[in-house]
Amino acid sequence: MPEFKETNATDLTEIYVDTTPGGMSFEIPEVGIAEFLVLLARSLAVRQVRLSFQDNGRYTELTCTTDTLADLLRDFTSHLADPSLIVEFDHATVYTGGGGCFSLAAALGPEEKAEIANTVLQAFGVTLYLQREPFSVVLRDGKAEVYT
């Protein structure tokens, strides 16, 4: 049975954060994708970020640092929900099926996964302290369902 917790989250659609073998997976509302990717880059303490996507059939690749990622994403907002987007960090890769559905491939320990999940959830107005894996969190209608 999931554990229900009241949150102060406002205007949330559904958000999912899961641990997976070899990474994590996420469902993020489209309006929050840029913020999510910046948070991920900061949490992973990466130096360089490489974004690639298809634009009208043409393959486009861009590189930046974590510090300049937010500015870069602002210029390419329309591609952030595209299934062709791939975001490569120093030692991690983010794949997406589009529409905010992400899979993070990275060698992370349970503590690191919990820290990333807590950071992402906090950005959407929810404070949870996840400490072990596997876990699965669903934010829906201002409530967090936690499966462990």
Binding site: D18, S25, P83, S84, G97, S136
Partner: peptide, 19 residues
Amino acid sequence: VKRAIGHFRVLVDHALRLR
């Protein structure tokens, strides 16, 4: 090639979800 493998990975991740 990279995208195909990535999308397969996304599919696998969903198969492993608790819901």
